[in-house]
Every structure is written in structure tokens, then in C-alpha cells.
Amino acid sequence: MDARRQDDIEVKPGIFIPAQDLSESFVRASGPGGQNVNKVATAVQLRFQLAANTTLPQDVKSRLARLAGSRLTLAGEILIQADRFRTQERNREDALERLLDLVRRAFERPKPRKATRPTKGSKERRLAAKKQRGDVKKMRGRVFD
């Protein structure tokens, strides 16, 4: 583990994301904003260098890549676009909080599935329902004297 620096972001106790793994850029946001919307770049694009990160465990990184889905670029970075609010500062906080939420969810290990079999009763009920449905369909046929 690398030594923690002052500007690193704490994901959970003892786990930090180095500030150098994050970069942000500002773009013009769509949506409401009046005359200001065409002049000020309030939307934030937060990029997290997942491939270059050394502080997260490998299993967490692979789960994070799966959770990120289409937000993961070919360069191995997670791109989060935040334009919900009208100010840059609120959008920056929103983007960072969404990234941290994604990382925290990646720390949760999925519960392993236990293979189960259908009970005898459920098999019988399924077959009885199929038989009844088949009888209903049989009655729709042509009537012969």
C-alpha cells in the first residue's frame, strides 16, 4: 500500500483513492440555466484511472469494472458525467459522490449461489397446471358428432 497523502480521497476506513488517479474537466451542460447555460461550463466529467490504480485490491477492481459498465473506457478509466446542478461545485461533489458510491458497492462481495432442487410438491403442481392447461386447449378443437 502506498503512503496516504493529504489530498487522497477516503473510500472507506483504511482505503484511499490517490488524487493523481482522478482528473476532471468542465463542459457545457444541457438543460435549464437561462442565458448562463451558453456561457459557463458547469457540467463535470470526472475520470478515474482504474487500470493505473494501485490502492484497490484486484478483486474489487474487477467488480468495479463490471459495475461501471459503459462508463468504463477502452483506456481503462471510469468516466462519470455530472450535470444535474447549475453550479460547477455542486456537480463536482455529485460526480465524486457517485464515483465513491460505485467503489463502495464494488467492495461488497456477491453472495455465492447455492444450488437447489425443486421439491416434489412443486414438480407435481407444475405438471398438474400443465395438464389442466392442455385440457383447456383440447376443448378448443373442432366438435365432432
Rank of each mutant, 00 (worst) to 15 (best):
M1R: 13
M1Q: 14
A3V: 08
A3I: 10
R4P: 05
R4W: 04
R5I: 11
R5V: 12
Q6R: 13
D7M: 04
D8S: 02
D8M: 06
E10T: 00
E10K: 01
P13Y: 08
P13A: 11
G14Q: 09
F16S: 06
F16L: 09
I17T: 06
P18S: 13
A19P: 00
A19F: 00
E24W: 07
E24G: 10
S25F: 07
S25W: 09
V27D: 14
R28K: 03
A29E: 03
G31D: 01
G31A: 02
P32M: 02
Q35K: 11
Q35Y: 06
V37N: 03
V37Q: 09
N38D: 03
N38A: 11
T42V: 03
T42K: 01
A43K: 07
R47P: 04
F48N: 09
F48T: 10
Q49K: 11
Q49G: 04
Q49T: 03
L50E: 05
L50M: 09
A52M: 12
T55A: 03
P57F: 01
P57K: 04
R63A: 05
R63T: 08
R63P: 08
L64D: 02
A65E: 07
R66M: 13
R66W: 11
A68G: 09
G69D: 15
S70E: 12
S70C: 04
S70I: 03
T73V: 00
E77I: 15
L79T: 11
I80R: 00
D83L: 00
R84W: 06
R86F: 07
Q88L: 07
N91G: 09
N91V: 07
R92T: 01
A95F: 02
A95S: 05
A95C: 04
A95P: 06
R104N: 13
R104F: 02
R104V: 09
R105P: 08
A106V: 10
E108N: 12
R109M: 04
R109N: 03
P110I: 02
P112K: 07
R113Y: 12
A115C: 09
A115D: 11
T116G: 12
T116M: 12
T116H: 13
S122R: 12
S122F: 06
R125H: 14
R125Y: 10
L127C: 03
A128M: 09
A129C: 10
A129M: 13
K130Q: 14
K131H: 06
Q132L: 14
D135M: 13
D135F: 11
R140G: 15
R140V: 07
G141E: 03
V143K: 09
V143A: 06
